[in-house]
Amino acid sequence: MKKADRYHKWVEWSEEDQVYIGKCPDLITGIHGGDPVKLYSELCEVVEDVIHHFDAEGRKLPVPCTRPMREVV
């Protein structure tokens, strides 16, 4: 498993901004764009870059805490 796979990433539509928002709150605040598929790919690249930056500086990565919510039935 790659380090980036430990972090939850998702894309959602923002009515307020009228754009898709890509999120990975354990590492970055977010990115935005008009194409959700392209945006998810870019989000994954940004997360990889952030992890590489942490590694290059010898910094410890934050513990992944964000998890998708599950609907209780």
Rank of each mutant, 00 (worst) to 15 (best):
M1A: 09
M1R: 03
K2M: 14
K2E: 12
K2H: 11
K3V: 01
A4F: 02
A4G: 01
D5S: 08
R6G: 04
R6C: 04
H8A: 07
H8G: 02
K9H: 10
K9L: 07
K9R: 15
K9F: 12
W10T: 00
W10Q: 09
V11T: 06
E12Y: 11
W13V: 00
S14Y: 07
S14N: 07
E15V: 13
E16Y: 06
E16P: 00
E16R: 09
E16L: 07
D17W: 05
D17Y: 02
D17S: 12
D17K: 10
Q18C: 07
Q18M: 11
V19P: 00
V19H: 04
Y20S: 02
I21N: 08
G22R: 14
K23F: 05
K23R: 14
C24D: 14
C24S: 14
P25A: 01
D26V: 02
L27V: 02
L27T: 06
I28W: 02
I28T: 02
T29I: 10
G30I: 05
G30W: 15
G30M: 13
G30C: 10
I31P: 00
I31G: 00
H32C: 10
H32E: 14
H32R: 12
G33H: 07
D35K: 11
D35T: 01
D35V: 03
P36Y: 05
P36N: 12
V37A: 11
V37S: 07
V37F: 09
L39V: 00
Y40T: 02
S41Y: 09
S41H: 07
E42I: 05
E42W: 05
L43W: 11
L43C: 01
C44I: 01
C44G: 15
C44R: 06
C44T: 13
C44H: 02
E45N: 06
E45M: 13
V46S: 05
V47N: 02
V47S: 04
E48H: 03
E48C: 07
D49R: 01
D49F: 07
D49W: 05
I51F: 12
I51M: 03
H52Q: 14
H52S: 15
F54D: 09
D55P: 01
A56K: 10
A56F: 04
E57I: 00
E57A: 02
G58P: 11
G58S: 08
K60L: 06
K60G: 08
K60I: 11
K60C: 11
L61I: 01
P62Y: 03
P62S: 03
V63S: 07
V63Q: 15
V63K: 08
V63M: 11
V63G: 00
P64H: 04
P64I: 07
C65M: 14
T66C: 13
T66G: 03
M69Y: 15
M69L: 10
M69G: 13
E71G: 12
V72P: 04
V73D: 12
V73Y: 14
